[in-house]
Amino acid sequence: MRPFDYARAEAVSDAAKGSAAGATIIAGGTNLLDLMKLEVMAPERLVDINRLPLGEIEETEEGGLKIGALVPNADLAADQRVRRDYPVLSRALLAGASGQLRNKATTGGNLCQRTRCYYFYDTSEPCNKREPGSGCRAIGGFNRIHAILGASDACIATHPSDMAVAMRALKADVEIESADGSRRTVPVDDFYRLPHDTPHIETELEAGDVITAVILPAPVTSEQRYRKVRDRASYAFALVSVAAVVSLEEGRIADVTLAFGGLAHCPWRDEAVEARLKGQAPSRALFAEAADLLLKDATGQGHNDFKIPLTKRTMIAVLADACGLETGE
């Protein structure tokens, strides 16, 4: 960890100004400090936002929830309103990390988690995400946890968050305050970038931006599921995860949002897949067709080829469960 100047922000504007001047914002720090110890990230200045009043969950005028950026993952998962109205979010949070980490990791920080790519984590290896233009060793290397959708020749990393997958399925908005004091909201749908040839740029955040909240729209009557598939029973990153919000009316799928973890550089959503499902009577055959549509451009890297059938199988099972299909129906 290289030496850094440490400052505590007393107001969001302090943090924004600090960020504009090149400081890195630290909240829970569970990912940032992990990376700083390895000098994968080596900021010269840290601005600590933990004392800012961004730790509340409030109801919005629209009937949704405004989740302060500093709300710990544990609190968000345990919030009665979240458990009742947004169970997919609660489930996703609880599927992530450990009890200790969830107590520290924050809502805003979780959105900004960096990839777990082994080569990104090893500073002796080239990595376009860590050092733009240096190359990608994951391509041609061990790539079990890597992307099957949306990858580029520059980067095949995946986004490790569970929470962000649920946020995308819930069509949440990210509230951002900038150094000039302006505020904007960016839908999670638009918050992340695919790697293309700039994998070091992961989100729409710019210097001077501070995430202040994540806003959930008013809840809709729906079945919500989050299913995470991983290599051990707990405390492991997703190989594949599926978040589903499904509204059924008169035996048909009136509305559906699906988001996927473990497949791409960001939580993945494909509206064409949702369109294929909407208005249809649920059946495994339909779900299989939709999964094929989702995966039509999926490309394995060798070790991660299994994610293609695994995604299809998991997606079918999640939808079948959400739609109340019996086994084999």
Binding site: R116, Y121, R232, S234, Y235, A236
Partner: peptide
Amino acid sequence: IVNRDLAEYHVPVNLD
């Protein structure tokens, strides 16, 4: 060794 930490080398956890 690619998976050289306890996040990626999976020793069983309590729930396993």
